[in-house]
Nucleic acid binder design. Structure first.
Lengths: 341, 341
DNA sequence: CGGCTTTTCCAAAGCGCTTTGATACCTTTA
DNA sequence: TAAAGGTATCAAAGCGCTTTGGAAAAGCCG
């Protein structure tokens, strides 16, 4: 069923039918009603390609997911982010297009996306400290919103991010207040902007309290469970082990917990743990009382909001060009005063 | 840069340029080379919408993710599945389109997808025991591949699935061989086809050994960590607790482990645990020695393969219409002989 | 060199929609 | 009553590509 058939069936011109369907004023209300009824009854939906060609809009948003060829890793937050964004898209009649791009061919990939013209805007995932994609997208004149920031980018762009620095500064300070002095940082890859900021926050709190920093207590890797386990094992087996861990992801924190339990160490008593918690749907941080003390911020919410920002931008009703969310510091049972030496 | 501009620039007709780019034989090799060079130099990529309109193909595959409105849950396997599929798509020049659909408006959603015509085929996620989508898609004449099966569907359709029944039957038998007699099943929602099959396998093994089934030892819910924790707590606090758990997801298994540890029970000694393991990238089941004894099958691989099956189907070189993968039973340290009463 | 096929290229139609510019038909107003 | 202004509809052009049906150019043969 296409427009032509529908309008023949109604004995109206395509123009009128099209206008009736798209809510233009210059069509009689009775006619409009008739058209709308027929359309829904005959199950007519306009062909998206044709509509896109004619309007120059594709009514789709692209999500470009960086894939490091070595790891074949998918960030576990991805599902929740996308589900949040998807909700906004549905409400506004947009489709969501996914593209996985290996680091090395980012440039061509983005250019191609622009040229192919099947998205009206892009959400940029996983920005690095220095991220060439931003300048590229500006050059291409493609609307985009970055989930995160890119510290070393001079350009102005629209982003939504959580206050990673402050969150980790607060968390570190909280541990220091509990008299911990050897606090380990199990971070994400520090070429990633968020991880870098977290480290800055961590270091700031240490420095503020005059505590020394120890490179042996800082790790930076892809945030898997095994990474948390391995790091914790190695650190706990050091002569002078940390009494607290600050961790960038709940998956990794679970690995750390495993290492603790394996050693008969009690979390919140022998060793304290704070993790960042993206509030993932399948991996909630406990129910009533949180398992982990955590810096929490819903990534689903961030997805929803970044989608909204992008749509506003595309439809020229943009006002807010950046959005910094504060993470909550929620206290669970994984932290407690440092054990006396 | 569009075809017209490109062909003007080359002083050739659009026809010739189009043919040169699409590898048709009726164009001089020198001309073709000239065209190809200019295209890459001027960064020309054909407009996907226009191309789609002209060819009737959209070169995109839709993934339709069911979202239960209450839970707002995203299956954690989703990211890995999609990343596997995405790889196949990239290799073949296909895009991936994501649609989140709430259960109640499935029918309209699928009809709309068909009518809008921006995908050439669909991957169906999370099939239920009885799933109306299958008949609908057949009626709509839309190529599709189901990730999983739908037991109660009479129709013939293309699917890829793991042998859930056998996997859980083997796992249960393994536990029985270890002299466990009270084996709990912490399953996914049993309206889901995979969960139903797992239950059938579990029951078959029990029956085969003449062991009684106890409804108090069987749960069926959305597979979160908290669900595992809560179920295990409740069961362990029963007068006659299970000595072994069979669990449908590694996330849930982690919750069970948390409950065990909280009670000072040692996994693999006091209580045995087997879980299904989708081999998620960020949640590997340990490194050298597996944390959990598990029935393992890579969901990333399944994603890759289902994408391939669908593309083959669309391009008429389909041969294989169903694919049953066996899960490995890998032995970790979470299982051991049942403790003597 | 004329007639034949083969090679190489082209003009124009068409995919399904939106949108511009016109055209009828009614009202209103001077 | 004629001119002016609305209202409701339409025919046709155009979005950027593919593809059909030719036509010109080139190569081959006797």
């Amino acid at each position: 069923m296409n427009l032509k058939q529908l309008s023949n069936h109604l004995k109206l011109s395509q123009t009128t039918v099209s206008r009736a369907l798209n809510g233009y004023p210059e069509v009689n209300e009775n006619t409009r009603k008739r058209v709308l009824e027929a359309a829904s009854q005959l199950n007519y939906s306009p062909n998206a390609r044709a509509k896109g060609l004619a309007t120059g809009k594709s009514m789709a948003i692209g999500h470009v997911i960086p894939v490091s060829a070595q790891h074949e890793m998918v960030n576990p937050i991805f599902g929740d982010f996308v589900s949040g964004a998807g909700e906004t898209y549905s409400e506004n009649g947009y489709d969501m297009m996914l593209t996985l791009v290996a680091d090395q061919d980012e440039e061509t990939a983005y250019r191609k996306i622009k040229a192919r013209g099947n998205v009206d805007g892009i959400i940029v995932h996983g920005p690095k400290l220095t991220d060439s994609r931003i300048d590229l997208l500006i050059e291409l004149d493609m609307p985009f919103v970055v989930h995160g920031r890119a510290t070393n980018s001079g350009a102005e762009f629209t982003w939504i991010d959580i206050n990673n620095r402050r969150a980790f500064e607060r968390a570190t300070r909280y541990l220091i207040d509990l008299r911990h002095t050897r606090i380990a940082l199990i971070n994400g890859l520090e070429e990633m902007d968020f991880a870098h900021r977290r480290r800055v926050g961590y270091l700031a709190a240490l420095e503020e309290s005059g505590l020394p920093t120890d490179p042996a207590l800082m790790r930076s890797e892809e945030m898997t469970e095994v990474y948390g386990y391995r790091s914790a094992c190695e650190m706990l087996d050091m002569p002078n082990p940390p009494t607290a861990f600050l961790i960038s992801s709940i998956m990794t924190a679970i690995g750390v917990r495993r290492a603790l339990e394996e050693r008969g160490l009690q979390m919140g008593k022998d060793v304290s743990v704070i993790t960042h918690d993206d509030d993932l749907s399948y991996m909630k941080n406990g129910s009533d009382v949180p398992i982990f003390t955590a810096t929490r911020s819903s990534v689903r919410q961030a997805g929803k909001q970044s989608a909204q920002m992008l749509l506003d931008m595309i439809n020229n009703k943009a006002t807010q060009t950046q959005c910094l969310l504060e993470a909550d510091l929620i206290i669970g049972s994984s932290t407690g005063p440092a054990p006396q030496a």
